[in-house]
Design a protein around this nucleic acid. Structure first.
Lengths: 170, 170
DNA sequence: TTGGAATGTCAACAAGACTGACTTAAAATC
DNA sequence: GATTTTAAGTCAGTCTTGTTGACATTCCAA
């Protein structure tokens, strides 16, 4: 509405995607998409009396086996008290194993047990299935754009961690 | 790794974006990007002893002035008790006005007050600024792909609501 | 007029985040 | 060798935001 007036007027078609309405639409798309993004694992977790926090821990321990508690803390962006509660239940339930560091005995290195690996698989299968369907429906070019925008949306330090994770897997 | 073996092997480059590793990367991108997405308004809200729930309510009331409580309930996907608590504080603080319906007096129509409008502006300015920077950095084609994938990721009913909101603004 | 729908309220509860203070053990530094 | 710093864990308390369940009110409609 009123694209020719107001502070967001623009000369050519090329900037249409930067109007307030377009940005607002993007914000709502993020909101609704994130709901979908978490919906499938949330359903599985509810039956196990686990929450999203447990999923996140499982996900990142799986992605970087042997990671330390401090490392995980940085990635998840929560306090150690908050993570500890979640980690405690996962260790008690035999999903995660905590091994004292060899070089530095203060550190605890975290690993998924077979059981933990199975749960992580189950959760990420559900999440990947939705991701796969969305990717397939949108096509490879859209996926490239999707990642490009998401990456640009991250905080600088989070973007670094995102890249560090990728490199660790190569 | 091992793209030529395993259950996710593929014949051509065109499907590279559907490997488990690629999907995992997309999942992490969503996680980190959503953190960035909420970071700026969260900082503003913290000073006002409001939370994300207040922001969401303000956002959607602003986008559809006069909406009913039930309507908002559907969009936000929370229980009325949960919304009511948030709405109560916003009404008490003079951010939101609740008017009894004219046609149906059971319904309450929700509007932002001037003060509420100002706060919503402040919050969405911060969020839009990040969105704008990300859009600008990624370019219009990437933005188109971004929206395409996000939309495909939504639940069917949420996608309908997303479209309904867009149509309401035209 | 009676049933059902929309709204609101009270109470209780849980997950998951937070802060702050403190301990233990080990490593690093002076 | 003594001191400081770091990593992890723990205890206690708080806050937000979500949940159920029960119940009252109002009002539309069959």
């Amino acid at each position: 509405m009123n694209e020719a007036r107001g502070p967001n007027r623009h000369s050519g078609e090329s900037l249409l995607f930067l109007t307030d309405d377009q940005l607002r639409q993007g914000i709502e798309a993020m909101f609704f998409a994130y709901r979908g993004f978490t919906a499938d694992p949330d359903r599985i977790l509810a039956d196990l009396s686990y929450g999203r926090a447990h999923h996140r821990a499982l996900h990142f321990i799986n992605g970087a086996p042997g990671t330390t508690v401090n490392n995980l803390l940085r990635i998840l962006g929560v306090t150690k008290q908050s993570l500890n509660r979640v980690l405690r239940t996962l260790i008690d339930d035999g999903m995660v194993e905590s091994r004292v560091g060899r070089a530095d005995k203060r550190e605890r290195h975290l690993f998924l047990t077979e059981q933990g690996l199975a749960l992580e698989q189950k959760l990420s299968d559900a999440q990947r299935a939705r991701m796969r369907d969305a990717y397939r429906a949108a096509g490879p070019e859209a996926v490239a754009g999707f990642k490009k925008v998401l990456e640009a949306m991250m905080d600088t330090d989070l973007r670094k961690q995102y890249h560090a994770l990728r490199e660790g897997r190569e």
